[in-house]
Design a binder for these strands. Structure first.
Lengths: 227, 227
DNA sequence: TGGCTGCATTTTGGATACAAATGACTGTAT
DNA sequence: ATACAGTCATTTGTATCCAAAATGCAGCCA
């Protein structure tokens, strides 16, 4: 009689605000170092300061913002070294997880990843770099789902949240969105072929090369400024 | 004139409560699944509910507790699979970090680790398993400090926080505190000898064997109950 | 006995108002 | 120009109130 179990998830204001703020930070609407004022946010959302403050605490623990006592919440700013280090961790965890996932990937798993990749193509045509981070994260996570290691998956998602703004910046400035897209296609093909070792090597390269590209871009920029 | 820079770190109540609760959870004072009531905690600390709630949000993001809407905060309960998975991640990250650290470890670094190990010995004699987790964490982190990768270090610390209650349980029930101590001594010796490959292999074994011991203990226990 | 309904209690979620502490800014006096 | 005092905005914390949801229980019915 009733539809097949759609548990209307009632959300608390705190979790709604948390999700919204997280999205807005990830999308780049709030920039590095920008201060998030409790009063302004609570007015904007039409809620009191209580849920806003709880949301900020949660985002701080996730590493997206930084709360300085009596000063406020600042959107986290990562140094190049930080980004490189986080990408190193990602390369380590994601290659290991992909190795566990590939033997267990069903065609349904792969089709799900392919569907995300298709959305990628649409974003690519429209030069929509704004949703790039979310799609990138979804594609990667879709590949790892079959490994059935939820804790590792959650950890990787957090790392994506911390790094995506910077990889997106790299994508934007070095015009390598097409190349990333091609790499994703190749990665999916390797998974379909169950070429585990090749796929693992390739995803390592895929993740680390983003860091290298960012590094050399910043170096060039610095050279220009110095000249 | 003034004493050599002892910056009296003024703490906000929220962060003080957070730290206290974290310690109490790690020490095992609050057990798995136990409910933490806001009112009771705020009375106990003599503060209002606001800083308590913010502390709980932060601890939830760290994975130490779980907040269920309109039900409350429960101390996280990990399944055996969860613990094994987290130890897998630790083995991966810690072996990598140790590899980076050993070439850079100065004798000061090693002495710091040795000092912690000495405290370990005292705790061992007194059968003080309550502080085992903190000492274990401190020893491991001391070994990695020289790698100068703060983000990785913070991540590992979080993983320790999640798993320590369970490894301590294993230590307690299988009476392997001495063995862990010996392994730590051997690990330190390998670091002093700059035997990188051996040390990395050994720390992998050291971390994973805790999981194996826990697994077989639980299996035996289950067999006894079933019989 | 077993299960259900409805009600009261408890606890969490959230709003509002207010007080206190801190940091930033500004103007002034030396 | 530098040091200092005062002002002001913002964060931090408290107290109080109410709403919403979960829990527990008594009583009822089959």
């Amino acid at each position: 009689m009733s539809p097949p179990l759609q548990p209307i998830k009632r959300q608390t204001l705190t979790s709604a605000v948390t999700e919204s703020l997280r999205q807005r930070i990830l999308s780049g609407e709030f920039q590095d170092g920008q201060q998030l004022r409790q009063e302004a946010l609570s007015n904007e959302y039409g809620v009191s300061r209580v849920p806003v403050r709880e949301a900020l605490r949660q985002l701080e623990a996730e590493g997206l913002i930084q709360i300085i006592d009596h000063k406020g919440a600042l959107v986290s700013t990562l140094s190049l070294d930080d980004v490189l280090e986080l990408l190193d961790i990602r390369a380590l965890l994601e290659s290991e997880l992909l190795r566990a996932a590939i033997p267990r990937q069903t065609s349904a798993d792969l089709d799900a990843a392919a569907a995300t990749l298709k959305e990628f193509g649409v974003a690519l045509e429209k030069h929509d770099v704004r949703h790039w981070g979310e799609l990138n994260s979804r594609f990667h996570l879709a590949l790892y789902r079959a490994a059935q290691r939820p804790n590792t998956l959650a950890l990787i998602e957090q790392l994506h949240n911390k790094t995506d703004r910077y990889t997106r910046m790299q994508i934007l400035f070095t015009h390598t969105m097409e190349r990333a897209h091609e790499e994703h296609n190749k990665l999916l093909a390797l998974c379909r072929a169950k070429a585990t070792d090749e796929a693992v090597d390739f995803i390592r390269y895929h993740i680390l090369s983003a860091g290298h590209a960012l590094e050399s871009y910043l170096n060039e920029q610095q050279a220009r400024d110095g000249a």
